[in-house]
Nucleic acid binder design. Structure first.
Lengths: 141, 141
DNA sequence: TTATTTGCAAACGGTTTGCCGATTA
DNA sequence: TAATCGGCAAACCGTTTGCAAATAA
């Protein structure tokens, strides 16, 4: 990872508090600690944060996560509406197993280029994109 | 349009009622009646439905729209979380103007193929996909 | 010090649901 | 007729917010 969330906060002028540091830490560590396809929702984030400091309220988690999003540090996903998930903004796509819910991250140069081309075609400059593929695992043959 | 929503209901075994017919009609007509980028949310659907039959409740709109979605007739979008939007399931993508909120629909063979290929690469069969491009209009030069 | 942040609990808003009378196939 | 559906109002649940105390710069 290029820069920690804390460093990004500094460069974006986001004030750091003890709570925000803890929340940032939990988000940064979420993948390593919980496996490859770990995309915790706010409630789960709150659970993990609570183990470090049980006095942090869920309102603070919501506020912090929204703050980080507005600073461009995190991106918000609504894979299935009703529960938002946040992760570090590093611009990959998702392949979601509709049976198990497993989430695979991928990047693809070619698709990236194609998207830019399509936006151009309609007279737009691409500023963001969201690509989610939904699939079922093929039987090994 | 190949098949009306009513026809799709018949072929999928979805029972038709007066209310469902009205809701289907409103959805089918949403584009022609309200301009190219008309993606009404449930509340707006309810408003339009009410003009035809004011006794239909919003609960029925929610139930119907979910029913149609489960039958594969409609797809649900959460362009911005908090308010779902439904439209006829005809497998296009969206280019969203982040300034004006305008929504442009497009299909692209190449990107379609590429998506399938990526799913395959990870051992999956693609069953669905969601692609949203966010852009700003380029100045005419 | 002074603006900002946090915790709490209450409010909010979109969506779902239990009940029961009405309607469909 | 038997099964399903619709209207109403209450419940639900993720998220936001007002307030007063606590904290960062």
């Amino acid at each position: 990872m290029a820069e920690t969330i804390e460093e990004k906060c500094l460069s974006k002028g986001v004030k750091l508090t003890e709570q925000r540091r803890i929340i940032a830490k939990v988000i940064s560590e979420s993948k390593e600690a919980y496996g490859e396809s770990d995309h915790p929702d706010v409630d789960e984030l709150y659970n993990r944060v609570s183990k470090i400091d049980p006095k942090i309220s869920i309102a603070t988690v919501y506020r912090t996560v929204k703050l980080f999003e507005e600073a461009g540090i995190l991106i918000k996903h609504d894979f299935k509406a009703g529960k938002a998930r946040y992760e570090i903004n590093d611009d990959h796509n998702h392949l979601i197993d509709i049976k198990s819910g497993e989430i695979i991250e991928f990047v693809d140069e070619e698709i990236e280029k194609l998207q830019k081309k399509i936006a151009e075609k309609y007279g737009y400059t691409l500023v963001d994109h969201k690509l989610e593929l939904y699939g079922v695992k093929k039987k090994p043959q």
